[in-house]
Design a binder for these strands. Sequence first.
DNA 1: TTCATACTTGCATTTTAATGCAAGTATGAC
DNA 2: GTCATACTTGCATTAAAATGCAAGTATGAA
Lengths: 99, 99
Amino acid sequence: MKKKDIEKFSTLFKVLSDSNRLSMIQHLCGCREANVGEISRCCSIDLSVVSRHLSKLKNVGVLSAHKKGKEVYYDLNASDLAKILRELADEIEKTDCCR
Amino acid sequence: MKKKDIEKFSTLFKVLSDSNRLSMIQHLCGCREANVGEISRCCSIDLSVVSRHLSKLKNVGVLSAHKKGKEVYYDLNASDLAKILRELADEIEKTDCCR
DNA sequence: TTCATACTTGCATTTTAATGCAAGTATGAC
DNA sequence: GTCATACTTGCATTAAAATGCAAGTATGAA
């Protein structure tokens, strides 16, 4: 693992380390997609806070977004996220075997 | 995923989100085990800082520790960590399929 | 028991992130 | 065009975490 990867994982984990953001991810697991207002109501978090959290999740590639009229819908990039987690798991165990 | 799991993952990811801690984990990937002083020198981080970081990593189960005389050796619980990451990956994809 | 080494902990400081209100922008309805 | 809705962004506040020095504890050696 290179220095650049450490920063990458640090950034990803930082984004995944907030329980409000994890709640939103969980909510998005259960539905195809959701807009900002829905998530705000559903998770009982201020709209502006939700907006910023979603934006962070999008920036690291955990979510995707698209506009429908006035609304912005977010959906989970589940397979991408799962892939990254599995690759990291492999790497940790691979290096472990070298002992 | 339950509320309790969200807290669990939030805690784990918080611990994994610091780049100094990731550097230490990486160092421990490459060697069987290392003591506090070795890691401090190797990663160029103040000894007291290393001590606290290692303690946090131990508290969430990422590392184990044992004393050898005056020294405290830490080693990576690689398979445990890999397992947690894979389980989360499965869960994310499983729920994704339900759409 | 005295000393040196290895580590931990207390504390103050600094850094980083989350929060929520208010003001701003974007879009569609009329 | 005006208006209402949906979201974003600026800003100040609050909260949480990282840092490093200094003082403390633990252990083995002499």
